[in-house]
Design a protein around this nucleic acid. Structure first.
Length: 510
RNA sequence: GGUCCCAUCGUCUAGGGGUUAGGACACCAGAUUUUCAUUCUGGUAACACGGGUUCGAUUCCCGUUGGGACUACCA
C-alpha cells in the first residue's frame, strides 16, 4: 500500500473556520492512524484576498487543538516551499506543458467580452453559459487566432489567461472514497482558467500540481469541491499523472443549526456561539469574533465534538481522546449527509471534559479569570474552589462567573429566596449562628455544620428551614456548591461579616 | 435554470430484506442531593412520499418531494 501522505491546505483569507478544523482533523487522524505524514500547505494564490495574520492564526489554531504538522510551512520538508505564492515558476512550467501538448490554450478575452458572451447565451435560452467547447471558437483565444497573432499579443504584453481545453463530450468518472462512483459529462465542465492574468495559478492547477509533486495519497476536503473534482481528474490525465492520482474523499458539510445551508459566521453571531477556534480580530473592520478557546471550551472537547460531526466509531463510546480517535478512525465510517451544528452537544462534551480534569489543572482557569479582575488568590484556594465547583460547570470561565462570591461579598440578595425563606426563624438562627462562628478562629466544613446543628437544636428550629437563608446571606444566590465547604473556604471572619451584613441590610420580618 | 451530492427520533447517529429500529445530546418525570448542579432510573420521539423487486421492505432499484453544494482570472 502506498505511503499515506495527506495535506490540509487552507487559504489565508481570514480566520480558520471550524469546518476547516474538522477537515484538518480527519486528515490528521488518517495520517496518524497509518503512520503517514500530515502536511500543511498554504494556498495563497489569490493575492486580492490575502489577509495579514491569517496564516499565523491557522498555525496557532491547529496547535491549540493538538493537530501536529509533520511537513509544511514551519515544519519544512522535502518539498519546499509549502506556500503556493512561492511556487509560481512551478505552475508556469506545467501550464506550459499543457499548452505544448494541446490541452490548454491562451485566452485574451476581457471581462466585458466574457460578460457579453454570458448574456448572449442567456438570451438564447442556453442552459449553461460557460466558456467551453461550445463557445470557445467564438472567443478571443489562441485557438481561433493565428499563432503569429497570439505570439504578437503576448510579446506586446497583452493580458491573457491560460485555459484548459475540456473535450466537448465524454464521461469523466471519479471514485470517491465516501460517495463511490461519481460521473459527470465533460460537456458540463467549462474551460477553467488555469493561470490567471497576474501570473498566479488558480486553485485547480496549483492543487493538482502540488498534490502530485508532494506525493499526496489522499485528498480529504469538503464537499464543496466535489463538482470540480472531475476537472481535477482531467488535469491529472492530461499531465500524465493518472496513475499517481490521489484518492479522493469529499466530506459532508457542516450545516447551520436550523439545517438550511453551510454553517457561516453570521449564524454563529446570531445564535451566540463561536465558529472559530481562537479569537480573531478582522484587520480590516477591526471586528472581533470570539473563539472557542476564549468562550470557555477545552480543545479536547472541541475535537471530540467535531470528530463526531460526520463520523462515528460504530460503537457506543462517546468520549474519545485524540489517541483513541486515531485508533478508531476510518474513512469508511464517514457519513454522506451534511451534519447540523448543535452547540448544545459541544457544551455537553465540554462539561464532561471539565469534570474529568484535576483540580490543579482547573485552578489555572480560575486563576486566569482572577488575574484579569486583579484579584489575588493562592493556588491552594483556587484548587479548593474548583474542586467543589467542577460538577456544576460548563465552561472554563464558569469557575469565576459562578464563584464570584468567593471573592466578592454579595451586594444584593436573591429576591425569591428572601421572600420565601427570610423569616423570623432565619433571623434568630443566623444571629445566634454568627455569634458562635465568631468564637471560632478557624472554620472547617465539619465545624460549620456541627455548629449549625447545635444552634438549631438549641433553638428548636429545623436546619432545613433556614439553610437557604444562610446561603443567601453568604453568597447572595439561591444555589451553588456545598455551603459548608463554601464557608470553610471563606473563613470564619468573612462568614460572620457576611451574615451580619445580611442581618443589618435585610428587613427584619415581624 | 443547469450539473453534482444527500435523506433513520428536534439534533448527532447505529443498524439493516424478517429487529420491541439501538445509543448520545436536548426535553419531560421520578429518586438521591435539606438548594442548585452532578449522579441514577424511567419516559416522549424517527426510517420523507409513491412505485417496483421480493413470501416479506425502513433496508435493494426507479421516480417524486425536500435539502444542500457548485455554477469567478475565490479557494
Amino acid at each position: 500500500m502506498r505511503e499515506i501522505r495527506v495535506r490540509f491546505a487552507p487559504s489565508p483569507t481570514g480566520a480558520l473556520h471550524i469546518g476547516g478544523v474538522r477537515t484538518a482533523l480527519y486528515n490528521y487522524l488518517l495520517a496518524r492512524k497509518h503512520k503517514g505524514t500530515m502536511i500543511l500547505r498554504i494556498e495563497d494564490t489569490d493575492q486580492t484576498r490575502f489577509v495579514p495574520g491569517a496564516e499565523e492564526y491557522i498555525k496557532q489554531s491547529l496547535e491549540w487543538v493538538g493537530i501536529k504538522i509533520d511537513e509544511g510551512i514551519t515544519a519544512g520538508g522535502a518539498h519546499e516551499p509549502y506556500r503556493q505564492s512561492e511556487r509560481k515558476p512551478i505552475y508556469k512550467e506545467y501550464a506550459q506543458k499543457l499548452i505544448d501538448s494541446g490541452y490548454a490554450y491562451y485566452a485574451f478575452d476581457t471581462n466585458e467580452e466574457l460578460e457579453a458572451m454570458r448574456n448572449r447565451l442567456k438570451a438564447a435560452g442556453s442552459s449553461n453559459q460557460q466558456y467551453s467547447a461550445a463557445t470557445r471558437m467564438d472567443m478571443n483565444n489562441s485557438l481561433v487566432n493565428s499563432e503569429e497573432d497570439t505570439k504578437r499579443k503576448i510579446a506586446a504584453g497583452e493580458a491573457y489567461v491560460i485555459r484548459l481545453k475540456v473535450p466537448a463530450e465524454g464521461e469523466i468518472h471519479l471514485q470517491d472514497l465516501i460517495r463511490g462512483d461519481v460521473k459527470v459529462d465533460s460537456s458540463q465542465i467549462d474551460d477553467k482558467v488555469l493561470m490567471k492574468s497576474d501570473g498566479m495559478p488558480t486553485y485547480h492547477l496549483a492543487n493538482v500540481v502540488d498534490d502530485y509533486l508532494m506525493n499526496i495519497s489522499h485528498v480529504i476536503r469538503g464537499e464543496e469541491w466535489l463538482p470540480s473534482a472531475p476537472l481535477h481528474v482531467l488535469l491529472y490525465r492530461y499531465l500524465g499523472w493518472e496513475k499517481e492520482m490521489p484518492q479522493f474523499a469529499h466530506l459532508p458539510l457542516l450545516l447551520k443549526p436550523d439545517g438550511n445551508g453551510k454553517l457561516s459566521k453570521r449564524d454563529a453571531d446570531q445564535m451566540g456561539f463561536p465558529i472559530f477556534p481562537l479569537n480573531w480580530t478582522d484587520p480590516n473592520s477591526g471586528e472581533l469574533a470570539k473563539g472557542f478557546r476564549e468562550s470557555g471550551y477545552l480543545s479536547e472537547a472541541l475535537i471530540n465534538f467535531l470528530a463526531f460531526l460526520g463520523w462515528n466509531p460504530g460503537s457506543e463510546q462517546e468520549i474519545f481522546s485524540m489517541e483513541e480517535l486515531i485508533d478508531a478512525f476510518s474513512l469508511e465510517r464517514i457519513g454522506k449527509a451534511g451534519a447540523r451544528f448543535d452547540i448544545q452537544k459541544a457544551q455537553w462534551f465540554n462539561q464532561q471534559y471539565l469534570k474529568a480534569k484535576s483540580n490543579e489543572e482547573l485552578s489555572n482557569y480560575l486563576l486566569d479569570s482572577l488575574k484579569a479582575e486583579s484579584i489575588e488568590c493562592s493556588k491552594e484556594k483556587a484548587e479548593k474552589i474548583c474542586g467543589i465547583m467542577k460538577e456544576r460547570v460548563t465552561f472554563t470561565h464558569d469557575f469565576w462567573l459562578h464563584g464570584k462570591f468567593f471573592f466578592i461579598a454579595p451586594a444584593s440578595y436573591d429576591e425569591q429566596v428572601i421572600a420565601k425563606k427570610w423569616n423570623a426563624d432565619a433571623v434568630t438562627v443566623l444571629t445566634a449562628y454568627s455569634q458562635e462562628i465568631n468564637k471560632l478562629n478557624s472554620l472547617t466544613a465539619e465545624l460549620a455544620k456541627a455548629t449549625l446543628e447545635t444552634v438549631t437544636t438549641n433553638l428548636g428550629i429545623g436546619t432545613g428551614k433556614i439553610l437557604q437563608a444562610l446561603r443567601v446571606s453568604i453568597t447572595g444566590g439561591a444555589s451553588g456548591p456545598d455551603l459548608m465547604m463554601t464557608m470553610e473556604i471563606l473563613g470564619s471572619k468573612e462568614v460572620v461579616s457576611r451574615i451580619q451584613h445580611a442581618l443589618n441590610t435585610l428587613k427584619k420580618p415581624v
